[in-house]
Nucleic acid binder design. Structure first.
Length: 530
RNA sequence: GUCCCCGUAGCUUAACGGAUAAAGCAGCAGCCUUCGAAGCUGUUGAUGGGGGUUCGAUUCCCUCCGGGGACACCA
């Protein structure tokens, strides 16, 4: 990890100064650089060039540094640029190939248990595009956290209690009556989707007694969710039922604890959680039933009780108002609210006839994850979501998405991987790459690829810290692009130069390895041929 | 009314407060007699408006404009 190493080398020499290690976009400007001279200049009241001079001279005098760096330069307006030595880059390639799929594994998360909760859609309808966004993101974030040493449990919370499920059950029962020929009023507050009718028909065929419709309906919805998730390439470790919290008395216990600690006020026959001087939120309704808030507080306590160091919840942005409430509740129970991290993703809306429509399970207006999967495919969907920031607002135009799926950059990445396979398949003259002739790797495109590979562990650790999962997608695209450029210009297979072929084969293996790791982290398939 | 998010090239998106704002698609001009043209090369083209902080602002602050979302005894 060059970045950390540089930071240490610098701060050891100049303690007490805050600075950044940057990665310039232009090769000319170095592989890494620092703005330290600007910071120092300000502190001392001198020019950045003046301020950086001593440090650069000191660094240049250090022979140890010279093993990794070939050049250190102080350039106007005051950046200090570092250039990696070619030998260092070549030697790193050996590590990539030797570690294989484990390359980039690290341990900042060692011993930390994370509960990563995502999708958690109400079991009242099929999963939709919005859920696909959370699924793609959550699954990949989990994979990356695991690669950096965290122990991750991917969890799906099922709200199998409350108004919404009651309505679902009611809707199914009504449709069943309707199918039996009874005249029913099917109000607009009922769930309108076709799947309700299908369930009703199925339950009639199976002669499910009315008293069991509830359990059957919930189970059917969960099965649907499991199925869709699986097709998206997401396997949850834990499906957690809200009803469990009620049955075990954990909800009541949480309430009692909040009350005893003085955070609960009673008003209008309901019980409220004090948020601050102006705000309060209902915990127990006047009819005695509990709200999602109290349930969620009990749920979070339950997670901590299960030994998780922290919990990361991925929610749609429409729940942003709930963040403060839940954190307040959790803090009231005496937990550090920072142990509860809530990531919000902006909503995915549907564009229909040029109009933006809000998706709603109740009205039956939504794009299903399953439809998307069959029309566009898992890889294109996942990469579509993974290459965008969570804060990006998306208007999903399914026609456009279908058109664009053929041009989805994911194929660009997979193609690079297939091309590598072709190369390996052609080198049947059983030549195994050796590490002897790596000096032969000196073309611009080769060095570019080496730098990409060296940077990979930093990208992974970066995402594990800042949750900017799309950085990985961007990195992978970049790596694939650099490989395509190399491929056009230089040949791996060299009939008359076995040393060069050997060196390039090793480079090809390095790229192949990292591409596979990236594709796996993002849950994308790895076609050997295309 | 209060709060959150967004506004970057014709379109979809990038850019820890850093250097000449980066890609893909679309457009234009080229490249298949050597590992796969799902590729490569060249080219046109952008930070919504106005202030401020800073050595330096797409990024932070204020304001205006435009868009999305939340402000329930629904979850």
């Amino acid at each position: 990890m060059i970045k950390k190493w540089l930071r240490k080398e610098i701060s050891d020499r100049i303690p007490g100064v805050g600075f950044d290690i940057l990665m310039p976009s232009e090769d000319m400007l170095g592989d890494y650089s620092t703005n330290l001279a600007f910071v120092l200049a300000k502190k001392k009241g001198i020019s950045p060039i003046e301020a950086g001079k001593d440090l650069v001279e000191e660094l240049l005098g250090d022979k140890e540094l010279g093993k990794k760096l070939r050049k250190i330069q102080l350039v106007p307006p005051g950046f200090i640029n570092f250039y990696l030595s070619e030998d260092y880059l070549r030697n790193s390639l050996v590590e990539v190939v030797e570690r294989g799929e484990k390359f980039g594994n690290s341990e900042p998360g060692k011993g930390v248990k994370i509960n990563l909760e995502f999708v958690s859609a109400n079991p009242t309808g099929p999963l939709t595009v919005g859920n696909a966004r959370a699924a793609s993101f959550g699954d990949t974030l989990g994979n990356i956290l695991e690669k950096t040493g965290y122990q991750v449990t991917k969890e799906y919370y099922i709200n199998d209690v409350g108004n919404q499920v009651d309505k679902l059950v009611e809707s199914v029962k009504l449709r069943m009556k309707e199918l039996k020929g009874e005249k029913v009023e099917f109000g607009s507050e009922m769930y309108q989707g076709e799947y309700i009718k299908e369930m009703a028909q199925e339950f009639l065929d199976k002669k499910i007694p009315e008293g069991h419709v509830r359990a059957w309906a919930i189970n059917a919805m969960i099965d649907k969710a499991k199925n869709s998730s699986k097709k998206m390439g997401v396997e949850f470790d834990e499906w957690f039922f809200e009803s469990k919290l009620h049955e075990s008395g954990e909800v009541e216990a949480a309430l009692a604890e909040l009350e005893s600690k003085g955070f609960v006020i009673e008003e209008d026959g309901a019980k409220w959680l004090k948020i601050n001087n102006e705000q309060k939120a209902v915990l127990v309704k006047s009819d005695g039933s509990t709200t999602y808030l109290l349930n969620d507080i009990a749920y979070t306590k339950n997670k901590f009780g299960r030994g998780f160091t922290s919990t990361i919840n991925i929610w749609g942005a429409d729940h942003h108002g709930d963040v403060v409430r839940l954190k307040t509740g959790v803090a009231a129970l005496g937990y550090d609210p920072d142990r509860l991290e809530i990531l919000l993703h902006q909503l995915v809306s549907i564009k229909e006839d040029g109009e933006i429509q809000k998706m709603s399970k109740r009205t039956g207006r939504f794009i299903l994850m399953d439809d998307l999967l069959s029309e566009i495919g898992k890889d294109a969907i996942r990469f579509f979501f993974l290459s965008r920031d969570l804060n990006t607002h998306m208007e999903f135009d399914i026609e456009l998405a279908k058109k664009q799926s053929k041009e989805n950059p994911v194929f660009y990445i997979q193609y690079a991987h297939s091309r590598l396979n072709s190369i390996f398949a052609k080198t049947t003259n059983n030549q195994q790459p050796t590490t002897n002739d790596l000096d032969l790797l000196k073309e611009k495109e080769e060095l570019r690829l080496l730098k990409d590979l060296v940077r990979f562990p930093e990208v992974v650790e970066g995402v594990a810290e800042n949750y900017q999962v799309h950085n990985l997608g961007q990195y992978t695209l970049n790596l694939a692009g650099d490989f395509h450029k190399f491929y056009e210009k230089h040949h791996v297979i060299q009939e008359n130069d076995t040393e060069l072929q050997s060196a390039r084969l090793l480079l090809a293996q390095g790229v192949h390895t990292v591409l596979r790791i990236c594709l796996n982290l993002m849950g994308l398939s790895i076609p050997e041929k295309m």
